[in-house]
Amino acid sequence: MPTFWPSATSSNVDLAFTRPVTYKVGIMSDRFLIFVPAYNCENQVPRVIADLACLTDEPGKFAIALIENRSTDSTLRRAEASLDACPLPDKLLIQNDENYNLGGSHKVAFDFARAEGYEYVIVLHGDDQGSIRDILPLLRKGGHRNLDALLGARFMKGSTLQGYSMLRTWANVTFNLIFSAVAGKRFYDLGSGLNLFRRSIFDNGFHLKFADNLTFNYYLVFGLADTGKRLAFFPINWREDDQISNAKLFTQGITMLKMLGQRIRSKQAFLRAEHRITPRSSYPATVVRRWSPSEDPA
């Protein structure tokens, strides 16, 4: 049965679990790294960073790591200016040494979070389609503590979609159901731009051979389910206005069907297989600038 948490606006947030969990409730004191992947989103990333100012009133310890993926516009410059103006004290601007695509940027973030000792990684895409505010009511209640992944879902009850076509909605819901049937667990979304992960689940590197491109999250949900991780989905508010989508519906559909065929043939082989076009032993990145709580604002 779904479990309800009271949200900040007194409405209910519906958590849908893929397996029974018992979670701890208490004052939030965990260390969170907010990973913001950014590529060619110069107009959107300032809004995303500005919205993170709401975290100054939250318990818990939040740091921002914006990982810029070799944009061809002014994303890097505008990201630095936005982070400089953000009141959160602990912030980093990181640039990938090469364009690793969205999945590769995730791998950079998870490795950085491990090196820095963060307990949780919150993924918030830099294109301003989702908001950090949708997950905060769950964190305040400790809804993440006995989970390995808390995944934002655009297509479950309680979510809202703005500027999303009926065709894309239908295609996403259809693939959610197909992936759920193959995995034997209910998936309400295969990869939105707002997710939380327990960082330690990536320490064994099970995710490293997953594709580096936009399909990384599709591999990841299968990987999480197939390795017995504790998952829950929660509704989010999602919008498209001035964003430029990198997803091509027909091409994505063909890619997903091929992926499903691989997974159906053998779950074990799917988890072990190399799914990257360009296998890498590492994903080097450079810290462009770091702000820390001890930094003198003057």
Rank of each mutant, 00 (worst) to 15 (best):
M1H: 11
P2D: 10
V13H: 02
V13T: 12
D14R: 15
L15C: 11
T18A: 13
R19G: 11
R19D: 13
V21I: 15
V21Y: 06
Y23F: 15
V25M: 12
I27P: 10
R31L: 09
R31F: 07
L33T: 07
V36F: 04
P37G: 04
A50I: 00
L52D: 03
G60T: 05
K61Y: 15
A63I: 01
I64D: 01
A65H: 04
L66G: 01
I67R: 03
N69K: 01
R70N: 15
D73S: 10
S74M: 10
T75R: 01
T75S: 14
R77Y: 07
R77P: 00
R77I: 14
A79M: 05
A81I: 02
A81V: 06
D84P: 03
P87K: 03
I94P: 01
Q95T: 14
N96A: 15
N101W: 13
L102G: 02
G104L: 05
H106D: 06
K107G: 01
K107Q: 10
K107F: 08
A109W: 05
F110Y: 13
D111W: 01
D111Q: 13
F112A: 11
R114E: 14
G117H: 08
Y118A: 09
V123W: 06
V123D: 00
G126P: 07
G130N: 11
G130D: 09
G130W: 01
S131Y: 06
I132E: 07
D134I: 09
D134R: 03
L139S: 05
L151M: 10
A153C: 08
G158Q: 08
G158T: 09
L161A: 07
L161D: 08
Q162I: 15
G163Q: 06
A171S: 12
A171W: 12
V173W: 02
T174P: 00
A181F: 09
A181V: 06
V182F: 05
A183N: 07
G184W: 06
K185L: 08
L190C: 05
S192K: 01
S192H: 03
G193E: 02
I201H: 00
I201Y: 09
F202A: 08
F202W: 06
G205I: 09
K209R: 14
F216R: 02
Y218K: 12
L220F: 05
L220T: 05
F222A: 15
G223H: 04
L224D: 00
A225Y: 03
R230I: 03
R230S: 14
A232Y: 07
F233V: 02
F234T: 04
W238N: 13
D242S: 12
I244F: 05
L249Y: 08
T251E: 15
Q252P: 02
Q252V: 08
T255G: 06
M256S: 03
K258P: 01
M259A: 04
L260F: 03
L260I: 15
G261L: 12
Q262E: 13
I264K: 06
R265H: 05
R265M: 12
K267M: 10
Q268D: 14
A269H: 08
F270C: 08
L271K: 08
A273G: 07
E274A: 11
H275E: 01
H275S: 02
H275Y: 00
I277G: 05
I277Q: 12
I277S: 12
I277R: 12
I277V: 11
I277P: 00
P279Q: 04
P284M: 10
P284W: 07
A285L: 06
R289W: 13
R289D: 04
R289A: 12
R290W: 00
W291G: 02
P293Y: 01
